[in-house]
Design a protein around this nucleic acid. Structure first.
Lengths: 214, 214
DNA sequence: TAGATTGTTAATCGATTAACAATC
DNA sequence: TAGATTGTTAATCGATTAACAATC
């Protein structure tokens, strides 16, 4: 790990977890913490924590440790949570509605600005403070509002159909709950996949192949 | 990688993805596929695919490749999808309801048998074919039905409160959507976490730190 | 048989852990 | 100053890729 090297995905994916633990420590009123103690709480090694943090800069003090509040805010900045990326959600079925209502987009760098669906039964319904719009009006919406991020809560086939349209309307960032592999189709796109089925199957594997405890 | 070594998490987490791609190929009517072609479609190397599969056995034929249908079923068996682990879901808020209705538990090795919540407003409602039960009756339910897996769709604090009870009722396998770190609390427990917020923050990082394309 | 592609061993690459000098 | 703990370099470990003999 030398300065200027791109940060590895392994490190990036640990950042939100650090952020969570620090948030908790802060709420407990903990002022400082050493890498050793944080490591113990998180089930990591102190070395790893120091390596991870030093990808972004020296946030600690030798002989003292890290200031919880300071580190918390630093990681928030690194994650880019101070941004407000305008975001649309497509697919207001069970999952889409849950994501729309459940997620604290504003605290994670996003602002959910519109929801689309193609089902007549759903269009017009209110979710949070938003009226579900007809997917047919998507292009018009994009031209006036230029959303940057799309949350995809549609079945695979619908996403496949829609992919081109989304791309043509300038969307390059996707939070993808479908099983359609967007990243394979477009080069210059950033896709964060949430594959719930994969997660469930992984659990099944782990249960099935768990060491017997008798 | 020697025979008898435990399979690494990296390999395990790729299995559901293989399973998905093979399912698709099967639906297309593709009979055989080489590691090279599958690799190309999935954005992996042929080497990796052969290494991964050979953790579990030799499923191919030299000079020919893999039979799609055969490999698909083999991976299903490896994943343990033929099981029917009795599963309860706790927390019937937006997310819990979406998970309950959206997931094909039966095709992933599970059977959802009961749903619990503590809110008077939700208890008694029907989700799928199930009536949401009072969380106060959880212990009684566990004693009669012995569920093995719990899906946790509660806020962090509720899970924290509930953890002991679940453990005492014999539950050792968890699909955890909350931010509470069960794996830290109990030794002999298998927890598959789905941290949607972490995923969203990771996306935020990747957008914020994406290479400029001007 | 010749061509193709696997299964498997060896080489490389990257990520984690250990060690320690720097320094608060 | 002495003790503690960081930042950083070096060592280890594991995962991915390359190479190739085995064989269909």
């Amino acid at each position: 790990m030398h300065k200027g090297d791109p940060i590895s995905m392994s490190v990036i994916r640990r950042l939100p977890r650090y952020y969570r633990f620090l948030s908790e420590l802060q709420q407990n009123g903990t002022v400082r913490i050493s890498s050793r103690e944080l490591a113990q709480r998180m089930g990591l090694t102190a070395s790893q924590i120091r390596q991870d943090l030093n990808c972004f800069g020296g946030f600690g003090q030798q002989g003292y440790g890290y200031l919880v509040n300071h580190l918390y805010r630093e990681i928030g900045t690194i994650l880019g949570l101070n941004h407000i990326y305008p975001t649309i959600l497509i697919g207001a079925g069970n999952l889409g509605r849950a994501v729309a209502t459940h997620m604290a987009f504003e605290q994670r760098g996003f602002e959910l600005t519109a929801i689309f669906d193609h089902s007549k039964r759903i269009i017009g319904h209110k979710i949070r403070h938003m009226v579900v719009q007809d997917i047919a009006t998507l292009t018009a919406y994009c031209q006036t509002h230029s959303p940057q991020v799309a949350v995809l809560c549609l079945p695979k086939d619908s996403v496949q159909e829609l992919a081109e349209t989304l791309y043509d309307n300038g969307l390059r960032f996707f939070w993808n709950f479908s099983h359609y592999d967007l990243a394979m189709k477009f080069e210059d796109v950033i896709v964060e996949n949430v594959h719930l089925s994969d997660s469930l199957m992984t659990l099944c594997y782990r249960i099935t192949n768990a060491p017997e405890k008798e």
